[in-house]
Design a protein around this nucleic acid. Sequence first.
DNA 1: GCGGTGACGGTCG
DNA 2: CCGACCGCCACCG
Length: 124
Amino acid sequence: MKQPTPAQLKILRVIDRIPRGRVATYGQIARLAKLPRRARLVGQTLRNMPDEVLVPWHRVVNAAGRISDRDPRDMRRQRELLLAEGVAVSPTGRIDLTRYAWKPAPRLASRRQGRWPITPLYAT
DNA sequence: GCGGTGACGGTCG
DNA sequence: CCGACCGCCACCG
């Protein structure tokens, strides 16, 4: 990734909000970034991520509650970082999502710019 | 432009 | 709980 695309930026901003001690899935991140069905893009974004981009990449796991398969070095590293912040990883490499999944507080609706009603209240 | 390639995910046996 | 399949879709040769 030389330059992140706009979509990749949105993804990075979401990952940046994952709190310590919690995890989020690729699909969840995509949805939060308003990019449904683009879970793979989340993976691709992290794959080519230079180290100097400081995002908590280790808090991203797959929907099975597992660390996604790739270079074993990086997988062990991810497990380390998770354990270090209190996320239990079972001997079989499992993370209990019912317990550690990040549940973001609902975003407040962004301020509207237009001066017109959102819905055509008197449309008839 | 086209097709192969994934740090994915839902479904099914 | 696997593993196999398959749909998905942005990137990159």
